[in-house]
């Protein structure tokens, strides 16, 4: 009997198991979690014949090295990066067949931040509240991978997609995030709103799966004091006391006490997963697709 498992040889800076997360439990204080670049994750799953909710690996900046104990098909996408099998170059963004015991190396991203590694059959660690995602805020799900971690794999679902390479969006040179004002835009001065929607911010290196932090002019409050804790949504732009906007990503807290000046259009969220520190970022008022 084949041992369907994946051995982590090099974990990289931060590699986690992700699927589509565990929405529906926010009232218990459970973040949604899930792959930050959801379209890239879904595409990699499709390339190896997995359903879109199969669990895969999300790497951060410098990839990871993996060794399957049985023959598998893998696909690496999201952030463009070199891929090799036993030291030989292999395609990125396409299904790659790995014999049992081969070494898959996912290298440092040449642009973007997060690469997705889908494996035929999916990663089948024990789900928590219906999801296998690692949640870095609450600690639910499997811990971030370390060298030597052995991940169980499921049975392959179907034949991998018969494609050579599929188009994927390039990581953004500039983030342009469409916003809807509120719910707490009235907590800020008119000058702050003008600054927010006209100034070019930069993505901060303190960004993580919880939030995309920004550097730029502080947004001045019109109302002082504390806001009683209230529910938070994915894509909320919260403004902490230092005045720098933070865009809430998948592992965001379910409630928060800092005012949310605006909410990002959901279609503009996946590129935030691939924005490297220093990337220029603008918030623009709503409107149709850019």
């Amino acid at each position: 009997m084949t041992d369907r498992a994946l051995v982590v040889v090099r974990a990289g800076a931060l590699t986690t198991v992700q699927d589509r997360g565990r929405p529906g439990h926010a009232h218990l204080g459970v973040p949604r979690s899930g792959a930050l670049d959801a379209p890239a994750a879904a595409l990699m799953n499709r390339l190896v014949g997995n359903p879109p909710d199969a669990a895969l690996l999300e790497t951060t900046l410098n990839g990871c090295d993996l060794r399957p104990r049985s023959a598998v098909t893998v696909a690496v996408g999201g952030a463009p990066c070199p891929v090799s099998v036993n030291g030989r170059p292999a395609p990125w963004g396409a299904p790659v067949h790995l014999p049992a015991g081969a070494l898959l190396s996912v290298g440092t991203a040449v642009s973007g931040v997060r690469a997705y590694v889908a494996v035929s059959g999916g990663v089948t660690v024990e789900p928590v509240l219906g999801s296998r995602s690692t949640d870095l805020l609450s600690g639910l799900g499997p811990p971030p991978l370390t060298a030597g971690t052995v991940l169980p794999l499921g049975k392959p679902y179907s034949l991998p997609a018969r494609v050579d390479v599929v188009p994927q969006p390039s990581p953004p040179a500039e983030l342009v995030l469409r916003v809807t004002p509120g719910p707490r835009d009235d907590w800020f001065t008119a000058a702050a709103w003008h600054t927010f929607t006209t100034h070019t911010y930069r993505v901060s290196s303190a960004s993580n799966r919880i939030g995309l932090r920004t550097e730029g002019p502080a947004l001045e409050r019109a109302i002082g004091g504390e806001l009683p804790s209230e529910g938070m949504v994915l894509g909320a732009v919260q403004v902490p006391p230092d005045g720098s906007p933070v865009v809430f990503l998948a592992d965001h807290p379910t409630t928060g006490g800092y005012p949310v000046i605006a909410v990002i259009h959901p279609k503009d969220l996946p590129p935030t997963a691939q924005a490297t520190p220093g990337t220029p970022l603008r918030f623009v008022l709503g409107g149709p697709a850019l």
Binding site: P23, G24, A26, H27, P228, S229, E230, G231, M232, V233, T254, T255
Partner: peptide, 15 residues
Amino acid sequence: VREIVPAARTVLLDG
């Protein structure tokens, strides 16, 4: 709605 999230002075309806 997917999420009904009560808080101190609010209830969020998300999804």
